[in-house]
Amino acid sequence: MAAVAYDVKNLVKTYPRQRAPAIDGVTFQIHEGEIFGLLGDNGAGKTTLVRQMVNLLRPDSGTVELFGRDVRDDPRHVAMLVGYMPQKSAALNRLTVGEAIYFTAHLRGLSRQAARGERDALVELWRLGDIVDKSSEQLSGGQRRLMQLAVAMAGDPPVLVLDEPTNDLDPVNRKHVWDVLRDRNTRRGTTVILITHDAVEAEKAIQRVGIVQRGRFTALGTPGELKSRVALQVHVDLSFTPGSPPRLPAGITPWKSAPDSWSLRVDPDAVPALMAALDFADITDIRLSSATLEDLYLHYVS
């Protein structure tokens, strides 16, 4: 069993002039080497939770321990071990991309020479070579997000806390982010805690997920565990010759239709009947997929 990286107990936080708590008695653990995802609506309390985990916000009550030490007892403990990427992307507007990575690596304890090496490696990893000398305020939202990821990783902290790492990114870069995070986790055992709305892509990386609503976890576990707790429907995508739609069993109707394709959602026990009823002579393509993390998320927040 891996060591516990984060141990959060009975965390409560209510902002001034707010009646409802932003975080309402949250208790959970994150193990070393885990990729943990936080999903939830806007305003559900995810950012408040991670800001308390990186010691930027004081809880009203409860504790956050990182590798067995309360984060408030020694702020440097968190600062040495955690690379935090905030949601806001304008924090380093005055520095160039290269400077931001270099200074962060050096301030996390690398020698000046090692910090320069780290800068070059991260510039290559995040494909920032063309913009390394640009001031970050000159960057697009997506480029700034990649720079923030490089800054969070600078100095190779064993824990990464990333607040919406794929925001503003195009599909190619989104995929690259998930690939890099998975690789970092596999090769170096980096613990990754991330907030994301990109549930479809996140499913490929996340090992355990917490779904947050109104400051509480409404679900917490591996995607497989959570899926097994609820009866989620199977996705069926059918393609057929235009003008020759297949017959469907009674009670099954497409939720999305085009002249040559349908999308269906079917209860798992109704799949055999559907397959038996279809005339495959008219079907050009059929795809079945089980419920996704996005379905799970939508199920719990609905």
Partner: peptide
């Protein structure tokens, strides 16, 4: 759990912060 490195010295912190803030030119 890594890294096994020390936090930067006060002098190193001051030099870095000075250089970072000088970029405000």
């Amino acid at each position: 759990m890594s890294p096994n490195r020390n936090a930067p010295s006060v002098y190193a912190q001051l030099v870095d912060l000075l250089l970072i803030q000088l970029s405000n030119y």
